[in-house]
Nucleic acid binder design. Structure first.
Lengths: 339, 339
DNA sequence: AATCAAATTCGTATCGTTACGATTGGCAAA
DNA sequence: TTTGCCAATCGTAACGATACGAATTTGATT
């Protein structure tokens, strides 16, 4: 009645009149088994649909063939951070292509990041960890290093980190984007960032200021807003800079959702987005392209970033001594038009 | 030098002068340990930061305390299906609250769904599985049932399934939405669906047709489009129905992205979205609300759906004999305005 | 003090796998 | 035939946890 249980080494060994040890060796390409025996074993294993039991293997070898990623939830559960989707997809695909499973753990927005990480490490569930949303002095780095746990960061916590990371060159992106806007004669450029201690935002702010300095333009703190990750927050901030005595003439958004907020703020004032006021957006999903608003966009392939992060992690797991992979993702500017 | 390795039962037992068995029992609230001993053990375990090793536990009990979810990737890697984010977040939170880890597996858009499922089941990695994107006669159901593997479907493959599911009442949603549009004097209502064999789309089409029949309106196949999940596809379809000799006067979108396509199509023709042409959207992330376009929206809390799916799965794992949980998520209509 | 049952605690086997040392068999050389 | 060596295979222990039956302690009763 019941379908055959998952075959294990013992069953295969019994069916072939061999010992478990030999079967185990034969499946593992070791040099110590007679080629004839190896062929027999591999054939039998394939026929029985044998796959090693992850837990037995993990218990014995200490390797689980699982990797984990920790993501941080948004404040509003229903509010999608669009960038997550391609990133997750890239990671899962790369993991499964390499015979690994990817577990995703979410932490609440207010939860202590170090503590969640400790719990995850403690459970011993994974061979390595991908952490995201780096902050300036990130305590998680020291924690993982102390315990020699393979990890890859999505983002950097410092300018010259000595650990593996995949990051986007936010600084250069903002420097170039700001320079491009300046070249279009914008002199008051508003910038909307996320929470203050996020390192990504610091990088962006640096790039922005570098461009201003280079163009001999003053830095006006009023034009920079730190806020949460929603359209509403973005809209409120951009409204404030549009209503200044000397209003902003260009708006720089951190994400597609921020762009929607900016567009709403403009329309509310009868301003035509992208024509009356310049727009820049960091686009992760091409959503911005379909808004039929002329703007400057910077696109980064986050699915690829996810793949690269997993690759870097697996490399570290396989060879703990190897130098940490450090990748800064290339992105490119595009000018979306009205069509 | 090296920080203390992960403590195990043996170490704790040794430090207390107890046997491993007793320590194991004491941590498990069984009735057989002296309260004094239990207190000592629990205190020592807490102090040592003990958490059970997942693999040892899994090997012995056959239970892994992991659940898996299979999601299907979109055709375009960078194109986000927004609904996934809250769903994933709801699942991970509910899982971790119950001491479970959630593994996410993605299958390519063209990959055979049954085969991916087989691989996942084969690996024996999880105690239960959440499957999504049900098709009309879904072979995965029989596969999982045969092997008595606990599972919950997000969506239904039939009208009266005998397995656990969490679904949205797409049929009622579309029936009511269509009825509302008819009440606003729309007579030619266009409907954009996804791929043809997706059961969700069938449900929506049924609701749409029911409303038309009830209102004595003819069903015009030209007004129904099946297409992929992008703004571009949506835009093309809605353009086609706007350019008919007898054009559509209301557009029904399957998702936020579809709505963006619809709006683009309208603007291109100089039509004011929501005023010149009626709009309906199934909104999963409140994104539609911030477009400042007057429209009829139906909002479903997918984060909650994710939680419920996990709850249902855990119930089934804990008590395999219990009747399968069947939940149809409530949603509600909202009228978003221009503000 | 002796007895007995109940309350606690302990010891051993086991899940599936691999590491490592021990054992077997075959074959060539003496 | 005996010896020695190498190739091939085997047996046992171990990873960390729990189940189950056995052993010990406790405490009340005679």
């Amino acid at each position: 009645m019941a379908p055959p249980a998952r075959p294990n080494l013992r069953q295969i060994a019994a069916s072939l009149g061999l010992s478990v040890t030999t079967v185990s060796r034969a499946l593992k390409e070791g040099p110590e088994v007679h080629p004839r025996t190896r062929a027999r074993v591999q054939q039998a294993a394939a026929k029985a649909g044998y796959t090693p039991n992850v837990h037995g293997l993990a218990l014995r070898t200490g390797r689980t063939r699982m990797i984990a990623a920790i993501l941080q939830l948004e404040t509003r559960a229903y509010m999608a951070d669009l960038a997550k989707v391609p990133f997750i997809e890239g990671m899962t695909l790369a993991a499964s292509e390499n015979g690994y499973a990817l577990s995703i753990f979410s932490t609440g927005p207010e939860e202590d990041q170090l503590w969640s990480l400790q719990r995850l490490v403690q459970s011993g569930i994974s061979d390595g960890i991908i952490i995201t949303r780096m902050v300036a002095k990130d305590p998680r780095i020291a924690f993982l290093k102390e315990r020699s746990i393979p990890f890859v960061a999505f983002g950097r916590s410092e300018t010259k980190p000595d650990y593996a990371y995949v990051d986007v060159d936010n600084e250069a992106m903002m420097r170039e984007a700001t320079t491009k806007l300046v070249a279009e004669n914008h002199r008051r450029i508003a910038l909307h960032l996320l929470t203050r201690d996020d390192e990504t935002c610091e990088q962006r702010l640096r790039g922005y200021r570098q461009a201003l300095t280079k163009a001999n333009l003053p830095f006006d703190p009023v034009l920079v807003g730190y806020d949460e990750f929603t359209m509403a927050a973005s809209e409120i901030f951009f409204e404030s800079v549009l209503d200044l005595p000397k209003p902003a003439t260009a708006l720089m958004c951190s994400s597609e959702l921020g762009l929607l907020g900016a567009i709403a703020a403009l329309r509310k004032r009868g301003l035509v987005p992208g024509r009356d006021v310049g727009l820049f957006v960091r686009d992760n999903t091409r959503l911005s392209k379909y808004l039929a608003v002329p703007l400057l966009a910077h696109f980064v392939d986050l699915a690829q970033a996810g793949r690269l992060a997993v690759d870097a992690l697996l490399r570290q797991i396989d060879d703990p001594g190897s130098p940490p992979t450090q990748i800064v993702m290339p992105g490119h500017f595009e000018r979306y038009s009205e069509r």
